[in-house]
Design a binder for these strands. Structure first.
Length: 468
RNA sequence: GGCCCGUUCGUCUAAUGGUUAGGACUCAUGGUUUUCAUCCAUGCAAUAGGAGUUCGAUCCUCCUACGGGCUACCA
């Protein structure tokens, strides 16, 4: 089997969203699995809506995810003359023809049919005009579009996900391949570009499923070799509507900012609409590449569930090695761990990695170890620092102050004393202490934390909290 | 309206012409833990509806309902 060549072809009319990311992922996985190529084509022919900053956003997001593309990025707008050339060639050969029906005429006919509840079909008035007849009308100054001359018959193909799809060509109008201003339309261009790029597998969202027969007819008209098609079900928001900008967070970059790693995103996204044919749910990227297969791709749309993403992320965090975690943190936030000793950073991350679901969780807790000042939440301090808590903190402060050593067993015995002194369980003691030391209501074991924080910092914070 | 596609716990999904319809997330309860989280255990929870084929249908066929896509001189 030849090495596959696949492509991801976003239009730069917005950032890379979750659905696009999953399409890119499945393309990329397929290419990697089979030692093929993953190409990137930017469909920037909609001048009104395309913006170059979106191209940067999309490529940044793809790079972050690790979907490195092969060869240069193809800008569709650079292929204009090629598209024009093919259109001319098709007019000459008679596989396409100029249609002189105006938009107004067509609109009138369309609304008329709708009124009569009839099925609207584009009239084939100009379909069989000779080149000479067409020229006469052009000379008269009539404007025209170019339409594909669709033959009678059935168009059939086998989709890797949906199986056999069959459409009677009667259902398809001779659709426009070039507008009156000469610009080519999507269903035409996509076929030409995919063919020119030698794409062997077209892997995309199933919103393109119904357009595929049209594209196949373009391939056929030009005698081009058909690629294999694989359509992926859509991803829906929690309201069951197709994921769009209306939904909470659809931008891939937002998830990065929320502290999800690329690995966690890839892991979760792969589980949407696909299953590994086993109970495994946590994958690293290499495992995913070898497990991926179109056979297990779902036909029905999947709902994006951030709760499960969070769980996947937590599982990934727990197994991530500390070195990797540190470099992830540093690339997420350039302020994180600044000027801190590497050993210290290691210890901090080691201590809290397991209990974090995202990198942002990690940052929040690790800041406690890096920053000099603690910000205490007012409501929480009112609730936690009652009279007896203040007494506990005071006693602890005094006890720690005179203590020379800073070891776990020493801290434990100090707390033992406090327990008997205040007739309280350890849990009750820890709550105010933790709050005083971190400003948080949760975190790693108190003794480990104190050891890592160091005596000076602990005393400082205890006295700071007592001044509240 | 026409065409295409789809429908298993709330969510992601497994399964076979014969199973107590399985797992995971969420949620609840209990346990572990000095807190929180983790972890462990238990529990709640599904084959859209109706016909047909069959000894037997979640699985095969048809119909209905619902959802999605396409039907543009958008991509």
């Amino acid at each position: 089997m030849n090495k596959p060549i696949v492509r991801f072809a976003p239009s730069p009319t917005g950032y890379l969203h979750i659905g696009g990311a999953r399409t890119a992922l499945f393309n990329w996985l397929y290419a990697k699995k089979n030692g093929g190529k993953f190409l990137l084509r930017i469909e920037d022919t909609d001048l009104e809506r395309s913006k170059s900053e979106y191209i940067d956003q999309i490529t940044d997001a793809l790079s972050w995810l690790g979907f490195d593309w092969d060869d240069n990025i193809v800008l569709q707008s650079n292929n204009k003359s090629r598209h024009q050339e093919v259109i001319n060639q098709m007019i000459q050969s008679g596989t396409a023809y100029r249609c002189f029906l105006s938009k107004e005429e067509l609109d009138a006919l369309r609304t008329d049919s709708e009124k009569k509840k009839e099925l609207f079909r584009v009239p084939k008035t100009y379909r069989d005009y000779s080149l000479e007849q067409q020229q006469v009308l052009i000379d008269q100054g009539k404007s025209s579009t170019v339409r594909l001359k669709i033959p009678d018959g059935i168009t059939e193909f086998t989709d890797l996900v949906y199986g056999n799809i069959k459409v009677n060509n009667k259902e398809l109008d001779d659709f426009i391949i070039a507008r009156s201003d000469g610009s080519p339309t999507y269903n035409f261009v996509v076929a030409i570009d995919d063919s020119d790029m030698n794409i062997s597998h077209v892997i995309r969202g199933d919103d393109h499923l119904a357009n595929t027969p049209k594209q196949i007819l373009v391939y056929n008209a030009l005698g081009l070799t058909l690629p294999t098609f694989a359509h992926m079900p859509m991803i829906l928001g929690s309201d069951k509507k197709r994921l769009s900008k209306r939904h909470a967070a659809t931008n891939v970059q937002e998830y990065r900012e929320k502290g999800f790693t690329a690995t966690a995103m890839i892991n979760y996204l792969s589980l949407l609409g696909w299953n590994p044919d086993s109970d495994q749910e946590i994958f690293n990227v290499a495992d995913l590449i070898s497990a991926f297969n179109f056979n297990q791709v779902q036909k029905k749309p999947a709902t994006f569930d951030e709760k499960k993403l969070l769980w996947v992320s937590g599982q990934q965090m727990a197994t991530m090695n500390t070195k990797v975690a540190i470099s992830e943190l540093e690339s997420l936030s350039d302020k994180w761990g600044l000027n801190q000793d590497l050993k210290y950073k290691n210890n901090v991350v080691d201590l809290i990695k397991d209990r974090s679901k995202t990198l942002n969780d990690l940052i929040e807790i690790s800041d406690v170890f890096f920053q000099d000042d603690i910000i205490y939440d007012k409501d929480m301090s009112l609730k936690i620092l009652d009279e007896s808590s203040v007494q506990i903190l005071t006693d602890l402060y005094e006890a720690l102050k005179i203590e020379e050593g800073w070891k776990k067993d020493i801290l434990e015995s100090i707390f033992d004393n406090l327990m008997t002194q205040h007739e309280l369980g350890l849990g009750k003691l820890i709550k105010p202490v933790r709050f005083a030391l971190t400003g948080l209501g949760y975190g790693p074991g108190i003794f480990d934390m104190m050891l890592l924080l160091g005596k000076d910092r602990c005393l400082l914070r205890l006295s700071g909290a007592l001044k509240l």
